[in-house]
């Protein structure tokens, strides 16, 4: 029964986010048309291409048609699952994104995992001893994490672990070019290597992943640790924790079962937001580590006025955002019995 209501609520939430997705679609389309830069000029053979040549390209691309018509055509294509063709790579945008999304997702997931594994204990420790040395240490660590831009911390990590210590592989891409790729099943290299039983490959991919993932994790530990601390403090000071103490529950039980489980709810929300933000905003990390992800793909496309990939990327991000919110919603429903159908 519980499962059914959760599923029902998730479905309703999804349906209600469809108009927003549609809005995003139209908005990005119009935005791209407003931005300066003419793709036809860009993709003409060279800087000295004649006016006629540019006109021909424009006609080929359909850019000579009025904007509403372009929009209608675009919507029709998207409706059929066709996001258009990238002029940069010459491939279908859907195909490009499909190739690159797992790389970004794998990086983001790993970063989130690392961030959570560090932020939760740090936040809890800080909350258990507010005003103590640990609390201040955590605060300092978080402040540093936020203050240092990801490209700086990324470069620092490369400098230390690759250049000075030499323990990390060179920061180029997801896996060493000399290692044979595993058969792609999920697109996540770590999982694919495991499925193929190739532990050496897994280790190589892991080593490639760990530095960029840490770079991104450093950046998001702060919000996660701070919210954990704040909501832990609130829940440790709550009446029901006092009740738990008054009947003599063990320290562990009080902290974990009573305080933490209640405190985790806002952390889930923040984790969802952090995840979506990271996925789109990790472009700097992807650039620093030559990571073949969607964000750097979209940035390249944007710089070369390549409409289709940018529009596809924004749509994808919006979609991911919706999905993440759904997941958060479902997790919330599982974690908190008070949330009923609504």
């Amino acid at each position: 029964m519980k499962l059914a209501t959760t599923a029902k609520r998730a479905a309703r939430r999804f349906a209600s986010s469809l108009p927003a997705l549609f809005g995003v679609l139209i908005f990005t389309f119009l935005l791209m048309r407003v931005l300066p830069g003419d793709p036809a000029v860009f993709f003409a053979s060279g800087p000295n291409a004649g006016k006629e040549e540019i006109e021909t390209i424009r006609k080929q691309m359909g850019l000579d048609k009025p904007v509403p018509q372009q929009l209608a055509l675009y919507l029709y294509d998207v409706g059929r699952g066709n996001l258009g063709r990238s002029l940069m790579t010459g491939q279908n945008v859907t195909k490009d994104l499909k190739e690159r999304l797992p790389a970004s997702l794998e990086l983001t997931f790993s970063a989130l995992l690392i961030a959570l594994v560090l932020a939760l204990p740090l936040g809890i420790l800080a909350a258990l001893r507010p005003g103590s040395l640990i609390d201040h240490g955590v605060r300092l660590f978080c402040a540093l994490g936020v203050c240092i831009p990801t490209f700086v911390s990324g470069l620092l990590l490369i400098y230390v672990f690759y250049y000075l210590l030499g323990v990390a592989p060179d920061p180029t891409g997801r896996v060493d070019i000399f290692i044979s790729q595993p058969p792609s099943r999920t697109g996540f290299l770590l999982i694919d290597f495991l499925l193929a039983g190739d532990l050496d490959g897994w280790w190589a991919a892991f080593k490639q992943l760990i530095l960029p993932a840490c770079t991104m994790a450093l950046f998001v530990i702060a919000p996660l640790a701070r919210i954990t601390r704040a909501s832990m403090l609130a829940s440790l000071g709550s009446d029901f924790v006092r009740t738990a103490r008054s009947v003599g529950l063990s320290w562990w039980r009080i902290v974990v079962t009573y305080a933490l489980r209640n405190a985790i709810l806002p952390v889930i929300t923040i984790a969802g937001i952090v995840f979506s933000t990271m996925l789109g905003a990790n472009v700097l990390v992807e650039k620093v580590f030559s990571w073949p992800g969607v964000a750097s793909y979209a940035l390249d496309a944007l710089l070369s006025s390549d409409y289709a990939p940018v529009q596809g990327f924004v749509l994808l991000m919006a979609f991911v955002f919706v999905i993440v919110n759904l997941v958060v919603d479902v997790l919330y429903g599982i974690a908190d019995p008070r949330i009923s159908i609504g």
Binding site: S238, F240, T243, Y258, R261, N262, P337
Partner: peptide, 8 residues
């Protein structure tokens, strides 16, 4: 009501 753990 506040004295009882709301999610247990």
């Amino acid at each position: 009501r506040g004295a009882l753990n709301p999610i247990r």
